[in-house]
Design a protein around this nucleic acid. Sequence first.
DNA 1: TATCTTGTTAATCG
DNA 2: ACGATTAACAAGAT
Length: 269
Amino acid sequence: MPELPEIANRTREINNLLVGKQISTIDILQPKCLNMDPQVFQKSLVNATILGARYKGKWIFVETSQGWLLLNMGMGGEMILTTPDNLPEKHRLIFHFSDQTCLAVNFWWFGYAHSVAVNELDQHEMSAKLGPNALDLSLLEFQELLGNRKGALKSFLLNQSNIAGIGNAYIHDILFFAKLHPLRSIPSLSNEEISNLYHGIQKGLRMSLDKGGAFYELNLHGQKGGFLMEDLVIAYREDQPCPECGTPIIKIKTGSNSSFICPNCQPLI
DNA sequence: TATCTTGTTAATCG
DNA sequence: ACGATTAACAAGAT
């Protein structure tokens, strides 16, 4: 569940479906996603009761009676609430609950499940340095965030220590909504462009947030998100006409990743 | 076989 | 100190 819309939905589902459940055992099929020895991980969370969840950027913070379980789904994956006799084929971790249900966690590629003691959350470096949630900023705060920054716009937005929750799937449409090229330098942005970008972030993330996240991710019931391929405006639509001007959408390299842009609506300079 | 990818860190260079 | 670039890491699809 890579980006903020999916993470926010999964967090809400955890609050609705998992609160009150007690972890009885944990199966660890992929020890490398942990931040400690598997036995220590198990000991830290077995018998814990789930109290609630919140998120920051792409990290889900599950609060338990014995400390925090921090989840980052990396480049994609599922968390399915099911039973041990009905497990999905692929899974890396299984949290078994005392009510005979279980949460099966799968990472398509990389992902993290970290155990952090109650009072040591600020010592978890990967989450402690995250910037503010992309949807929790005011326009003024966003303007201040961009204040003295240099460099390219896209890499700034993808850097989670600046602003948390935007990834390389939603950013294509976000930048299109704002009519900004991904390689625009931050100091070159006018106040109006910064305002357009702020509203582009809100629009780009909220559309999917309100629909339960992207179609390529599953919720805790194993159902796909309601934000569909056709809801994407220009992302992954190479060679198709721009909905604003008809110019064919192009795919370009931006550093180590790719960007889909309308070369007419999002000029560089 | 080679390349791509919804993430993040570390290393390196300027 | 900061920004840009690349490689690396548990995979799977094309």
